[in-house]
């Protein structure tokens, strides 16, 4: 169970402050797949970062009752100067996994081949997405935090992710930030619409998408 209690986030903006999130309340149960909907700049990524503990809320609490992945996106979680293998080794250490198992899974899932010996900063966004998914799937989190922009992979990769996340790990939770109705519809069973700093929770995806269209 992940619980957000009255989460506020301010960012400094010139001399003033920008109130990005104005009291978000939500709970994510085991196996729930939440879509975060909202326009650009509505605070989707901010909320994902707060959930993942990358940044801390200005006020309010985030309680994590299950293991949560780091927010999967292009930038975070990697050391650009290190190779794919080095990143895998680093992640296997800090998450306490056997490096050899992790490496085998990453090689198999990401299909990056010799590219894994290159620094991550030379990767294209699709390649980063493959590496990020491979690593986080290998760690076996109970809940995955995903920034939609990372769903850019080709058809084959999309299919693989779908298979790994739904068929093999149907019991896991998912929090997915997106503004694409198709992706939300195919991955999620609940949705939160973020607008002007407040979040509205919908148990029905179609209602959520309707509401999102009205914005």
């Amino acid at each position: 169970m992940i619980i957000c209690k009255d989460v506020h986030k301010f960012y400094p903006l010139g001399h003033g402050q920008k109130h990005v999130l104005k009291g978000i309340n939500m709970t994510v149960g085991r196996g729930e797949r939440i879509g975060l909907l909202g326009r650009n700049g509505s605070g989707k990524s901010t909320l994902i970062k707060l959930l993942g503990g990358v940044e801390l809320p200005t006020s309010g609490r985030v309680e994590r009752g299950m293991t949560l992945s780091w927010p999967l996106g292009f930038t975070g979680g990697f050391q650009g100067a290190l190779t794919g293998y080095d990143n895998a080794r680093f992640i296997s250490r800090i998450y306490g996994r056997e490096y050899t198992e992790l490496r085998d899974f990453v090689e198999d899932f990401s299909e990056l081949g010799v590219q894994l010996k290159m620094p991550v900063k030379t990767y294209s966004s699709g390649m980063r997405a493959r590496l990020a998914f491979a690593l986080s799937l290998a760690i076996e989190f109970e809940c995955y935090l995903i920034d939609e922009v990372i769903m850019v992979g080709d058809q084959d990769f999309q299919r693989k992710c779908h298979y790994q996340l739904f068929d093999k790990r149907a019991d896991r939770s998912l929090i997915l930030a997106s503004h694409s109705p198709e992706i939300i519809r195919s991955y999620c069973n609940r949705a939160v619409v973020l607008h002007e700093g407040t979040g509205t929770v919908f148990d029905d995806i179609d209602r959520a998408l309707e509401c999102y269209d009205m914005l």
């Binding site: 503990g53 979680g77 800090i94």
Partner: peptide, 9 residues
């Protein structure tokens, strides 16, 4: 700061 993506750090 990018290492903070991992909560252990």
């Amino acid at each position: 700061s990018s290492l903070l993506y991992h909560r252990q750090i």
